[in-house]
C-alpha cells in the first residue's frame, strides 16, 4: 500500500513542484489539469512513435510548455483574466485531444499502444530489511525517482540561485524587483512555463506508466497538485509531504474499496473529495492560528 501511495503521488508531486514556481511568482495556475492532460497525450504518442520513453517524457514536457506559452500569451501579454484563461487552457486540452485523437486514430476513446516499452523499475530487489522502508524507497518506476530528484533541484533553484531570489521577490513584492531593474513580467512568464513543463512531465509519467491513454486520464491531479502547494506551505519539502499524504490516502481508499464494496464509479470522485476535505481542514486550522488577525472582517 505504501508502495502504491508513492506511485500515485508522483504525478501530483511533479505538477505541484512546477506549480510552486508559478505560485511563488504570484500566479495561481489553475491550468495545471489541462497541462497534465496535454503532457499525457503528447507523451504517450511520442513515446509510442519513437519507441523511447525518454522521448515520450520530453514530448510531454514540450507539450506542457507549449500550452503554458499559450496561457502566458493570453494572461500576461494580453492581460486577460488569469482564472478565465486558466479554465480556457483546461477546456482547450479537454476539447482538442479528442479531435486530434479522432483525426489520427479514428477514435476519441481509449488508445492502446502495445509496442510501448514498459516503464523500467529501479532499485528492484534492493532491500534494507525493513519492509516499510523498502516499499517507500525501492523498486519504483523511474518517474518516481525523477520526481524525487526534482525536490532538491527545486529547493536549490528557488532558494540558492539569483533566479529563485528574483522569482520569489516578484511574487512577494513586484515593485522591489522592478526598481532593481529586473523585468518582473518575464519572470512571471518563465515561472508559468516551468509549471507547464513540470505538469507536462507529470502527464507523461501517468500515461507512460499505464501504457494506454484514456479520456480524462489526468483525473483531477492538476487540482490536487494545486491544493498540495498550499498544504505544503509553498515549500518543496512540504509539497513532498503533502503529495505523499494524498498518495497514501488514495491508496488507502483504494484498498478500502474492496472491503466496503464501494462502487467503482463513485470512487472516481474520491481524489476530489479527499482534496477538498484536506483543503478545508487546512484553511480552518490556519484561520484558527490567525484568530488574532489584525484586520477583522465585519460580518454583521
Amino acid at each position: 500500500m505504501i508502495f502504491n501511495a508513492v506511485e500515485i503521488m508522483t504525478p501530483i508531486l511533479l505538477a505541484a513542484l512546477g506549480g510552486l514556481f508559478a505560485e511563488l511568482a504570484g500566479v495561481l495556475n489553475i491550468a495545471l489539469e489541462g497541462l497534465i492532460l496535454a503532457g499525457a497525450f503528447a507523451g504517450i504518442l511520442a513515446g509510442a512513435a519513437s519507441g523511447s520513453l525518454v522521448v515520450g517524457m520530453l514530448a510531454g514536457a514540450l507539450a506542457g510548455g507549449l500550452l503554458a506559452a499559450v496561457f502566458t500569451f493570453f494572461s500576461i501579454r494580453l492581460r486577460a483574466n488569469i482564472f478565465i484563461t486558466g479554465l480556457a487552457v483546461n477546456l482547450l486540452a479537454a476539447g482538442s485531444i479528442p479531435f486530434i485523437s479522432t483525426w489520427m486514430f479514428g477514435t476519441k476513446g481509449v488508445l492502446r499502444f502495445p509496442d510501448l516499452p514498459r516503464l523500467p523499475r529501479l532499485l528492484e530487489g534492493v532491500t534494507s530489511g525493513v519492509g516499510f522502508i523498502d516499499s517507500l524507497l525501492f523498486g519504483h518506476s523511474a518517474t518516481v525517482y525523477l520526481a524525487w530528484l526534482l525536490v532538491p533541484l527545486a529547493l536549490v533553484a528557488l532558494y540558492r540561485t539569483p533566479f529563485g531570489l528574483r522569482l520569489r521577490a516578484v511574487g512577494a513584492r513586484e515593485e522591489s524587483v522592478i526598481i532593481a531593474g529586473v523585468d518582473a513580467v518575464a519572470y512571471r512568464r518563465i515561472a508559468v512555463l516551468i509549471s507547464g513543463v513540470a505538469a507536462g512531465l507529470a502527464g507523461a509519467a501517468i500515461s507512460l506508466r499505464l501504457g494506454v491513454y484514456l479520456p480524462n486520464i489526468s483525473a483531477g491531479r492538476g487540482w490536487i497538485a494545486l491544493v498540495a502547494i498550499y498544504l505544503g506551505y509553498r515549500h518543496p519539502i512540504g509539497i513532498l509531504i503533502a503529495a505523499l499524504l494524498f498518495g497514501f490516502t488514495e491508496s488507502l481508499a483504494g484498498a478500502a474499496q474492496g472491503l466496503l464494496a464501494i462502487p467503482g464509479t463513485v470512487l472516481l470522485g474520491l481524489p476530489y473529495a479527499i482534496t477538498v476535505v484536506a483543503m478545508i481542514t487546512y484553511s480552518a486550522l490556519r484561520a484558527r492560528g490567525l484568530r488574532r488577525r489584525r484586520f477583522i472582517d465585519a460580518h454583521f
Binding site: T161, L165, S176, V177, G181, V182
Partner: peptide, 21 residues
Amino acid sequence: HPPYVPGFRVWENIVLGMERT
C-alpha cells in the same frame, strides 16, 4: 517608501538584480 520583500534578509534585498554567483 522603498519597496522590499518582508521575508528577505537585508543582503538578499540589496543584491536583488545585481546578484553575484
